[in-house]
């Protein structure tokens, strides 16, 4: 019976890896709630996850934290510089969107594709950070 259990574990690991990368991508569009879900997944599986799941969960969690920090910083900057109806709000939104979003989006996209293929992946630069 050991072999079917192992297969089930691999399938579950792959599914959760795909969900992790999906939550990371969703967090770029609608920040916070997906990050909370990712945090729960990370805390829940940190000790037990191995291989593929550990790789993708860890990458997605680090990425989502950084993306949320950048998003929060952009919003704080808007508030400090005069609020959402100020001249700066549009500029900061557009700059955040053309610089941060594509840079965070493409690794997430590649991560999702790798997770679906059952392969591991490390985000460039931020993938080496430890949590």
């Amino acid at each position: 019976m050991a072999e079917p259990d192992r297969q089930l574990e691999v399938v579950e690991g792959k599914t959760l890896a795909v969900i992790s990368e999906g939550l990371y991508l969703l967090n770029l569009l609608f920040p916070l709630l997906p990050l909370l879900a990712l945090t729960w997944l990370w805390l829940h599986h940190r000790g037990s996850a191995t291989g593929l799941l550990f790789n993708h969960l860890r990458q997605a969690f680090i990425g989502a934290v950084i993306a949320t920090i950048l998003f929060t910083a952009a919003n704080l900057l808007i508030i400090i510089l005069g609020g959402y109806r100020s001249l700066h709000a549009l500029i900061i939104f557009e700059l955040y969107y053309i610089i941060c979003v594509p840079l965070l989006l493409i690794p997430g996209l590649l991560g999702l594709i790798k997770a679906m293929a059952g392969q591991s992946y490390r985000f460039p630069l931020i993938g080496r950070l430890d949590v």
């Binding site: 996209l109 590649l110 594709i113 790798k114 293929a117 392969q119």
Partner: peptide, 14 residues
């Protein structure tokens, strides 16, 4: 378009 990207890379991976 997002799905198309995932689709293309997925198929090439397989």
């Amino acid at each position: 378009f997002f799905m198309m990207t995932v689709f293309a890379f997925n198929i090439v991976n397989k």
